[in-house]
Design a protein around this nucleic acid. Structure first.
Lengths: 240, 240
DNA sequence: GGCATGCCTTGATCCATATCAAGATCGCCG
DNA sequence: CGGCGATCTTGATATGGATCAAGGCATGCC
């Protein structure tokens, strides 16, 4: 029997789209939600599926990929912890979603969710703002893919992760040592950055040698000076 | 005195976001809209601006760009004729918008437009769907930027344009000769595709030599077999 | 007409990153 | 404990596209 959790104990209740809802509305959403665990490497939904899929990511990382007929692949989005996963108002989801790590989802049946979207404008509005942010992020990534060097790409990615973890961690000090785990394998990093595995590995070693990052293990990173990392990343908006 | 056109004679009335509005709502939008002509090369809005900007593109092409401190540039979006231009619900628009050709806009004052968005859910919904489509397009372009060869990039771009013009033109036959004008200079194409001017030029010559396209002039293109073009583009979804 | 300017093409060379190849390291399972 | 597969690193070499350089072709202005 699937777990039907109380939203009141949900770790992402405020930050996720649910934050847009009043108590009674939240209850309606709670009624239809259903928690699911997905092990790393498993497909969440496919671009072949004709059915829609809606969920909040409670923990873990989901990658959205596009693949060419000959197998070349590009990760076009990473969906982290409080983020929403799904594509409203469309029957042909053009992405392939796969768990990059073990993932916990809070899933919503599509019909019920879409009718909630109609009934609660604040929910739709929240989702809209979400989508706008995703669009901004995608375009930022277009700059990275089209114009940055391998070194800048790697640094940008690490900087992205470092910022994410700053937020989670303590006060938002700037340029403070950040420690975090890479949520992706080298192969996935390559597919996210438009590089090969080998180049990813080499550039990481280079950043390590330059003292920009420390590698506790191949997955565990430490950034002694995030401003320095931002500089290597080609820092457009040198903020936070 | 600025022209205040009747929406009833608007060339993009149905296809633009205005299509979501009923007659009386359209009248409200009409009241606040204001037509503007912007010559090629001129700035439409800047990422430095703190004020919001909303408009429909009536004719011409607007490019959205991102630039790095050292001048490297990437076009992150092209806004064509019936498309909407602007970023709702945000004070820091992260893009620089520039007229790629002479452009006609139907502009909306930001406060008035945002209150219309609140009052007319159908308008907001239309804009939401628009944004979802833009996101899909951006991610499609991420695959291009990260994984396609120069030749595939050029072919993909030409195929994009060919499809656009098919829609505008007569019946939607497949694989029929298409003729269209490039809305961008070689330099802009390079910035859109993550290449240099020289590579763009060379690959165009190559496609011409291979008989995939004919070049009436440096800007005027003819595609005898759009399916062949799609094949060179690395065709993921070989549709239309 | 002549000249300047912007846009485009073509050629020669270089280099960043891909590709090919070989280990090294780590975790897992028998 | 040993071995096996997956993941990661490192080295040698190849190559696609960048860079550097020159010239062609329009268009507009004097």
């Amino acid at each position: 029997m699937p777990q039907t959790p109380h939203c009141s104990s949900c770790p992402v209740r405020v930050t996720a789209i649910c934050g847009a809802l009043k108590d009674d509305e939240l209850k309606a959403l709670s009624m239809i939600s259903r928690q699911r665990r997905i092990p790393a490497g498993q497909v969440v939904f496919s671009d072949q599926d004709s059915s829609r899929f809606f969920a909040n990511v409670l923990s873990g990382t989901v990658k959205l990929t596009k693949t060419m007929p000959d197998g070349r692949q590009q990760i076009v989005g990473l969906v982290f912890s409080p983020d929403f996963l799904g594509r409203a108002f469309s029957f042909n989801n053009p992405y392939f979603a796969e768990a990059a790590s073990d993932v916990e989802l809070c899933c919503f049946p599509h019909d019920a969710f879409e009718s909630l979207l109609k009934d609660y404008p604040s929910l739709q509005h929240r989702l809209f703002e979400n989508t706008l942010d995703e669009l901004d992020a995608a375009r930022e990534w277009m700059l990275l893919l089209g114009r940055k060097t391998a070194e800048e790409k790697i640094a940008s990615f690490l900087y992205l992760l470092a910022r994410r973890h700053h937020v989670d961690g303590c006060a938002n000090q700037q340029s403070v040592a950040a420690s975090f785990e890479l949520p992706l394998t080298r192969a996935d990093m390559a597919d996210y950055l438009g590089l090969t595995i080998e180049t990813v590995s080499r550039q990481l070693t280079k950043l390590k040698t330059r003292g920009i990052v420390r590698m506790v293990s191949s997955r565990q990173m430490e950034v002694p000076d995030s401003a320095a990392l931002a500089r290597v990343a080609g820092a457009e908006g040198i903020s936070n």
